[in-house]
Design a protein around this nucleic acid. Structure first.
Lengths: 194, 194
DNA sequence: CGATAGTATCAACAGGGTGTCGAGACGACG
DNA sequence: CGTCGTCTCGACACCCTGTTGATACTATCG
């Protein structure tokens, strides 16, 4: 068995465990044993639980960014349709990797590194959304109002939190199947008025 | 020194520590020593770190609920003013107790009890907001749309997340002084249309 | 075909955290 | 002056983390 196989085994063990219980209930020993190695050997491959999580997480983010396409850039074509399309792309990916998503949210609370990585990802989306809002305002489709960046930040943080509550099943939450519709409606009203 | 004094000392020690570093970096021994008692004695007063936090947290929630008054119920009088008034009341309290607020957010990720308590609080606000939205729709001030409850949940989760990002200073975030204004604008547009 | 260098592995250690138990100190009150 | 709550903590058992140092295995080259 090669080093790459071992590393994959660690990722697989982690993904299995995280689908069974919360991140803070999983020890490095659990992950290591699940991958058929000892705890010190785990440290040969990863620096921490969080490092394993980030590895899985980044793969997931790549998938999400690929799937979303350029919906936001083409928002002028048909705002409701493009918004819905983009949100559905993200939510489908997060839903497909629910355990990793929830573990990521948990890790963000205690790991500065996870927090920073997620913040950087959010930052790119905020930039794109703010640009799209400004373009819609420039062409007269959307009325002026609060700074586009502040609007983009607030709406994206809403998406994050609403999706998380729905996936975690923590009340109060919007039903999973209604998440995309509700978020789309609020974005449309917040950006375009009616 | 009486038992009540000791208990107060524990709360004070906790509040001081939590203003210096993150919750997960604080051990029960730290809290106990800061209160001038031993670790086992800590357990005589509280079952866990989270129990101390919840004690402080509930006091803070009482303050917030008192300060907010009945802004939401009187929303018909002047929606922008009432909304702004209510949001400012909450945000002021959270800002005045920033370390406790941030510790609460951190604890929610790992403690089912904290998560449940916060969920119950959110649930009461969701009920009030949904009722207010339905009343505005009934009197024709607000147009129909997505279910009032889903709208209320999403907007309140947005408020929670936006306020948290601002208080934690985790990018991307809205500047503290702009939070209330931005949130008010989005609520107005989401509920009333333009 | 042996020397050597990089890769991989883990027993054992050091350090820190949690929660509990049982023995005792202390004050109030019948 | 006993005795009963209240209060206190040393000591223990246990779990978790991250590192060290000894050891294997493997591949490549002179």
């Amino acid at each position: 068995m090669s080093g790459d196989d071992r590393e994959r085994a660690v990722l697989a063990s982690f993904e299995r465990l995280v689908s069974e219980r919360a991140l803070h209930e999983i020890s490095i020993d659990d992950i290591a044993r699940g991958a058929g190695i000892s705890r010190p050997t785990f440290y040969f491959y990863f620096a921490s639980k969080e490092a394993v999580l980030l590895s899985l997480f980044e793969r997931m983010l790549g998938e999400a960014n690929a799937r979303r396409g350029d919906a936001l850039e083409r928002i002028a074509e048909d705002p409701p349709a493009r918004l819905r399309e983009g949100f559905a792309a993200f939510f489908d990916v997060f839903r497909a990797h629910r355990p990793v998503t929830l573990a990521g949210a948990e890790a963000r609370a205690t790991s500065a590194e996870v927090e920073a990585v997620w913040g950087a990802v959010m930052e790119t989306w905020v930039g794109e959304a703010a640009t799209a809002i400004e373009a819609e305002r420039a062409r007269g489709a959307a009325p002026p109002g609060v700074p586009a960046r502040d609007l983009a930040i607030s709406l994206l943080l809403m998406n994050e939190r609403v999706q998380h509550a729905a996936l975690a099943g923590h009340a109060p939450a919007v039903a999973e199947d209604d998440v995309v519709g509700v978020l789309t409606t609020i974005w449309l009203r917040a950006i375009y008025g009616t």
